[in-house]
């Protein structure tokens, strides 16, 4: 049974990958005309850009989960706060875009650390489910508080960036610079994170704490502080995602709640707990969504991502890069 499902999994994923890369080939052989190919690539690029945002939010969720086994349902709110901070610094105070963006991410980091200290630490050791409810409640509170802040409120705002409005032309393909910026900065950020976890002491300590809390504690790693830093890092990534998402959608209190229900499927699709998994999962969800929205009848845009999730989980319950943990008795 498992073997059969495994075979089907390889078959399906291989054909999906082939299908994904086939349009340029079809165009070469003249089956597809140039306009159709451009359309397709356009969708892939916008899907990738959206997917990058999902991936970053999923990445934050996975970072926190890996280290603390807390499933953070408020990750979308961390993102939303980051976006609002950026709006405050850049639009309201009129700061330079880059300075404002840096301040927003820094603010996000502080906010994440404060969240860990104030909300999460009192419930460490309780069943995972109880902590999930705490983060869920925290999401409600953050949304409420943000809507009460003078100048933020329940309105919808746009964030202007240095890239806004300009297009990037690659032959016939027109890519908005916002999309290009999202994709490029996600790549850079992921590279940084990889180096961080691989080569810095703090990164290694974070890995260790996530493998075995008690052992890490005995080895002299200040586990509690590491957790706080993880929350800070994760919230920083989320704020960064908010900064990227703001120019292509709008800033409003509900923006996080919408993204979270894409980011979680992304993290799960990739294998919950796997960092590359979160990124690949985010990209898959983003691209599937964009293609389904364009080529399938109306209404399939949102459903398609979930159908893909269900199919993958059916065939590979641990996700694409997930670890199968077998309990020893």
């Amino acid at each position: 049974m498992d073997r059969v499902l495994g075979r089907i999994w390889w078959l399906l994923s291989a054909s999906a990958v082939i299908a994904f890369f086939s349009p340029p080939v079809l165009w070469l052989f003249g089956v597809m005309d140039g306009a159709q190919l451009t359309q397709y690539l356009q969708q892939v690029v916008s899907g990738t850009a959206n997917g990058c945002v999902y991936a970053l939010v999923a990445l934050g969720i996975v970072l926190i989960y890996k280290a603390t086994e807390t499933i953070n349902f408020a990750q979308g709110e961390l993102m939303m706060v980051g976006a609002f901070l950026a709006f405050t610094f850049i639009t309201m105070y009129g700061l330079n875009f880059w300075l404002g963006a840096a301040l927003a991410v820094a603010g996000g980091v502080l906010f994440g650390m404060a969240t860990d200290r104030a909300i999460i630490r009192p419930v460490v050791g309780q069943p995972v489910f109880a902590i999930v409810m705490v983060t869920l409640g925290f999401g409600f509170v953050v949304r409420a508080v943000v809507s009460m802040v003078p100048g933020w409120g329940t309105d919808t705002y746009a964030l202007a960036t240095p890239f806004s409005g300009a297009d990037l032309r690659l032959g016939a393909l027109v890519v908005s610079q916002d999309y290009a910026a999202i994709i490029a900065s996600t790549v850079v950020l992921c590279g940084f994170l990889f180096l961080f976890f691989r080569y810095t002491r703090l990164g290694v300590a974070m890995e260790a704490s996530s493998e075995n809390q008690l052992a890490a504690y005995y080895m002299g790693i200040p586990v509690k502080r590491v957790y706080t830093l993880i929350w800070g890092l994760s919230a920083g990534v989320a704020a960064f995602a908010g900064l990227l998402l703001a120019p292509i959608t709008f800033i409003h209190t509900q923006m996080g709640f919408g993204v979270i229900f894409k980011a979680f499927p992304a993290a799960i699709l990739g294998g919950f707990g796997s960092i590359p998994g979160a990124i690949v999962g985010g990209l898959i969800i983003g691209i599937v969504e964009a293609l389904a929205g364009f080529y399938l009848p109306e209404g399939f845009k949102d459903v398609a991502a979930y159908v893909v999730l269900l199919i993958v989980l059916l065939l590979k319950p641990e996700g694409i890069f997930g670890r199968v943990v077998v309990k020893k008795v």
Binding site: L136, G137, V142, A144
Partner: peptide, 22 residues
């Protein structure tokens, strides 16, 4: 008249419950 008062209190109560009354 604050917007979001209800959901805020709702969330707050959930948090307090799990912390104080697991």
């Amino acid at each position: 008249q604050l917007p979001g008062l209800e959901s805020g209190i709702f969330g707050l109560v959930i948090i307090l419950f799990v912390i104080l009354e697991p």
